[in-house]
Structures are given as C-alpha cells and as structure tokens.
Computed example of a mutant assay.
Amino acid sequence: MRIDDFRMLARERIPPHIFDYIDCGACDEITSRANRRDLDEIRLLPLCLRNVADLDLRTSLLEHSFSFPIGFSPTAFHRLVHESGEVSTAKAAKTLNIPMIVSSMSSIALEDVVRGSANENLWFQTYIFKDRALTKDLIQRAESSGYQAIVLTVGCPVAGRRYKNVRNRFALPDHVVAANFKQRKVVVHNNPVHSVDGAELDPALTWNDVEWLRGRTSLPVMLKGIMNPLDVQPALDLQVSALILSNHGGRQLDTTESTIRMLPEVAAAVSKRTTLLIDSGFRRGTDVLKAIALGADGVLLGRPVMWALAAGGEKGVIDAVGLLLEELRIAMRIAGCQSIDEIRKNSSAIIRG
C-alpha cells in the first residue's frame, strides 16, 4: 500500500464534490502537478557500507522533541470526511508524537480539539483578518487553550480561484461549519472559507501587521506561505520562530514554482537562523529525505491527512503516516544515512537534480 492508495479510498468513500474540494488546485492546477513532478525529478545517489542498523529520526522543533520530521499542515473542515474531524487527526498526531497545525477553519472549535484529543502540543493557524478584534480573539483563545504556537498564513491577500469548486457549486453540508466563527447564510462556491462571518482576508497587509500580531501573543509565531527568498530577511527581522515554505498545495496562485525547487534558495537565505519547514506535494519517504537534504527541518502533509482520515479515521491517519515513515527508514538505510543530521551532512553527495 502507498499514500496514493488512501487517495483512491477517499475518492470511493466521500461525495465527488467533497473529494474535488480537497483535491483541487487553483485554475489549471499547474502548480499542484509541479509540486509532484519536481519531487520526482530529483535523483538520489546512495552511499554504501555506512552502518545504518540503528536509525535516529528524532527531531527538535520549537524546543520539543518529535519522533520524526513529519507533521500535519493546516487543512480546513475535517468533518467533511469523518464525523470526529480534527479531534481524530489530533489524536493521531499525539500517538505518532509529531506536530499538527490546527486550522482556524476547523470544523470543531479550537478548544474542543485540545480537550477531545488530549494533545498538549498543537499549533494554531490563523490569518490576519480585516477584523483585527476577531483575529486577536482567536489568538487569545488558542493561547488560553494550550496551543504551543501561532502559525500565521501569509501570501494570501485574496483567495485563489478554484474552478472545480465553482463548477460543482460547492457548499458545506449542514453538519459542517467553521466552528471558531459565527455563521452567516452566504455561500461562496469558490472557497467556503469566505462564507464565514468575519473571515475576510485583508489585501492591505504589510510586515507591520505581522509585528502587530507578534505583540498580541507570548507564543512562538511561525509564518506559512513564504516562497520568495526576498521575504526571508523581513521575517527574520521580526524574530519569528519558524518559516513554512508553502505554495498552499497549489491552491492559491497557479504557475507558482514548486516548493522543493525553491527550497535550496530559501534555505540559503535562512542560513540556519530559524526553523524551516516545507509542505505542498509530499507523498513518499524519499520526498522527506530529499527535503531534509535540501535544507528543510521537517515536512508537513496536507491532502494525505484528509485522504487517510476519510479512509479510516484516526487509525487511517496513523497507518498512512506509518507507511511514509517506513519508506523514509528504507530510503535512509539505502542512501547510507543513519540520522537526520547525516542526511544534512551528506546532502551534496546523495542529491542530484
């Protein structure tokens, strides 16, 4: 079995318009395809006879030790695919001892995700909305509920165009809501996030607004959506705790470069001065090895988590990550790398492309 098998199972088990909502990218989906194509085109050059009997996959993020460098990117509305929604996903993350970023557009209230999962190491994702009071309230709720970091999505001044959603006239079913917000009877087929009361994106945002958000919380702040090396220094000037290299799975601006192609440039700009995570298109253990070798501290999964949740709930998510982890172990052994640090140390020798 492989991660894409969970995609096929999800396709069989959820209505087509919901599958399309999860699966689709922006416009012609060029970036969505490029994320996979570019990962596939990078080649590995294994090292032999390196004693890889005992592997060490542990990694430290935000001063917390995780079992391996894989986590969950923020995705909205988990109850679209499973009745327990984000609670089941957070339970899986706790069992696996990996980070999970809970979306502000979760279908279960952020407080209930913590209580229901007993996961004490969740991170909370938000935007800076036009309604600053609402933004501030979300941050304070997350901090009071025990979240360990605030993940601010940047690079989305407006919503990307998703034609599959428009053609399907997509709308959330009655039992699925953005549980952290008040509801209003407005349907935006392109993206249901923008049917939510108060969840208006602000195209006037600048780096000053990131500084404003940092002043509203004592939690570490991470920025998700960095794609251009020119944005690294302004972020570092604000002393953010991590950057997430992300084109949002190709769901925002189509024809954006793939994240794996931008990783070496962004990693060089970061120069190990803060944590650097990456998402968008990761499906294989070899993908994770490539990302670590090219400068990432960890890889985050988006769509595969939703596919696995649809296919088997909490156990499905655990099983899917387990497959990816086993592939990573095999890849490390055959590539001749005993630890995450050795992948980095041997990067110039084992990567081509």
Rank of each mutant, 00 (worst) to 15 (best):
P173F: 08
L323R: 02
K185N: 14
A118N: 15
I260D: 12
M227V: 09
L49G: 01
T259G: 09
A310Y: 03
E314G: 05
S84C: 13
A199W: 01
F129C: 04
L55F: 09
S271I: 07
S339E: 03
G316P: 11
P173T: 15
F170K: 03
A308W: 04
V240N: 02
N190Q: 07
T286N: 04
R33C: 07
A26K: 02
A53P: 09
D54I: 12
T275K: 00
E29W: 14
W123D: 02
A179W: 13
V321P: 08
L96K: 05
V154S: 02
V321C: 06
V166P: 00
E314H: 03
L122R: 04
N97Y: 15
R115L: 14
L122Q: 02
V270C: 05
I128F: 00
V166S: 11
S32N: 14
D254V: 12
D131M: 06
P74T: 01
L301R: 00
A10M: 10
R132F: 09
P192A: 00
S144I: 08
I98K: 00
E41F: 09
S88G: 06
L138Q: 13
D20F: 03
A93V: 13
I139C: 13
R352G: 14
E83G: 04
Y163K: 12
G316V: 02
P74I: 00
S339H: 08
T256D: 15
E120T: 14
T206S: 11
V158T: 15
L61A: 05
S339P: 11
V193T: 14
T126C: 07
P16E: 14
Q252C: 04
N247T: 15
M262D: 03
S241A: 15
K136H: 07
R344A: 04
G312A: 06
F170A: 05
M8R: 10
I3K: 00
N208F: 07
L213D: 07
E12D: 15
V232Q: 01
L172V: 07
N35P: 10
L96N: 12
N247E: 05
R11C: 07
I3M: 06
D38H: 12
S271V: 12
I150E: 00
S106T: 13
N247R: 11
G155N: 06
M222F: 00
L245S: 09
V87L: 06
L223V: 01
L323A: 09
E211D: 15
R79P: 08
S84A: 15
R333P: 10
D209C: 06
V187C: 05
L45D: 01
I340R: 05
D279K: 00
V187L: 02
L39E: 07
R214P: 13
R184G: 08
S271A: 14
P69F: 05
I260H: 08
E327S: 05
A10D: 04
V305H: 09
N165R: 01
L301T: 08
S65W: 08
D5T: 10
A149C: 03
E342P: 12
I14F: 02
I278Q: 01
L61M: 12
S348L: 13
G146W: 01
L39T: 12
A53S: 14
M306K: 00
